[in-house]
């Protein structure tokens, strides 16, 4: 029982990370109808910038001699990482994707792969992050908050789930309760008709990229909390796999649907951890992709996605 609870907690925690990344995939797809393959590298950048910015703020790897950082330093690292990566997201859209607005979708897709390769390899340069793994900063003390049914609830899990939750609720408000959100939904339905409403479509697209990048950055930050230790170099296959699973989450939830991305993320996280705990753990990635295949076979629009029919 206690191991089951522990598995659930891990599943939800990792599912929250997947959900945050999936939101970026799904929002960009919703608006531009293309899969931003560089998005998983934005997540990687978030993790590495967490480490870098924590270093600038004097937080030592693994806690060093000073111990864990104060809570406000942790929040500061999160905010600065999100801002920095958000700016990177803006620049990428501006330089790589905007010039291709009228180009065929395939060109944009190939460009996204190019951006992805660039980010992976640029990150390995000696004066950027380098090719060696680096130790994560200790931003939270390893405290057990309380125990339920023999499972000790760690501060880290609460922080990761709590931050994910706050960000996801923030997205819900942004998209369904604000002027910018209604502009985003209008653009995702039809860029042409949105422009006839007086919506500056380019601005909405930039905004979407920035928000998506910031959420992925937050996921990178939370990843370093949940998995302290050595951060793998930016071109390591493990990052791609995490990004791919988040992409699967977006598809399973219904690509283009923000609530679907959250649901898909949690579902994929839970399925992954439950299958590792109760089935052969070597196949953890295979289980996730099997779910993808099942969804594509039986409900290709995803759980919350809708096959829209236009009235004429």
């Amino acid at each position: 029982m206690s191991s089951f609870l522990q598995t659930l907690i891990d599943g939800v925690t990792v599912g929250g990370l997947y959900a945050l990344i999936a939101l970026g995939y799904t929002m960009v797809y919703g608006i531009l109808k293309f899969i931003n393959f560089a998005h998983s590298d934005i997540f990687t950048l978030g993790a590495w910038m967490t480490l870098t910015i924590a270093g600038w703020l004097g937080v030592q790897a693994g806690g060093g001699a000073t111990g864990p950082a104060a809570w406000y330093v942790g929040v500061g690292v999160l905010v600065l990482t999100m801002v920095f990566v958000g700016v990177v997201g803006f620049v990428i859209e501006r330089l790589a994707y905007r010039p291709l607005r009228q180009a065929p979708k395939l060109n944009v897709l190939i460009t996204a792969i190019g951006v992805s390769l660039f980010l992976q390899n640029f990150g390995q340069l000696k004066f950027i992050f380098g090719t060696d793994p680096a130790p994560t900063p200790l931003l939270l003390p390893g405290v057990t908050l309380f125990s339920v049914g023999g499972v000790s609830i760690q501060l880290v899990d609460v922080a990761v789930i709590g931050t994910s939750l706050v960000l996801m609720l923030g997205m819900e408000v942004l998209i369904f309760r604000t002027r910018m959100g209604s502009a985003m939904r209008a653009v995702s339905f039809s860029t042409r008709n949105a422009s006839l409403m007086g919506i500056n479509v380019d601005k909405v697209i930039s905004f979407t990229f920035v928000i998506g990048a910031m959420l992925a950055a937050a996921a990178g930050f939370l990843y370093t909390l949940k998995y302290p230790g050595q951060l793998k170099q930016t071109a390591d296959g493990m990052w791609v796999m995490l990004g791919l699973k988040a992409f699967v989450a977006a598809v399973v939830g219904g690509i283009g649907n923000v609530r679907g991305a959250v649901l898909g993320g949690l579902l994929i996280g839970l399925i992954e951890y439950l299958s590792v705990a109760y089935l052969k753990s070597e196949y953890r990635d295979a289980y996730v992709f099997a779910i993808l295949i099942l969804v594509l076979l039986f409900r290709p629009e995803g759980i919350l996605g809708r096959a829209t029919v236009e009235k004429v």
């Binding site: 002027r179 209604s182 502009a183 939904r185 209008a186 995702s188 339905f189 039809s190 008709n193 949105a194 409403m197 007086g198 919506i199 829209t308 236009e310 009235k311």
Partner: peptide, 16 residues
């Protein structure tokens, strides 16, 4: 029209 939005939201977008 934006079929995924309500009538109210469509009208609000007209005054964006």
């Amino acid at each position: 029209i934006f079929a995924n939005l309500t009538v109210a939201e469509n009208l609000a977008l007209g005054a964006f």
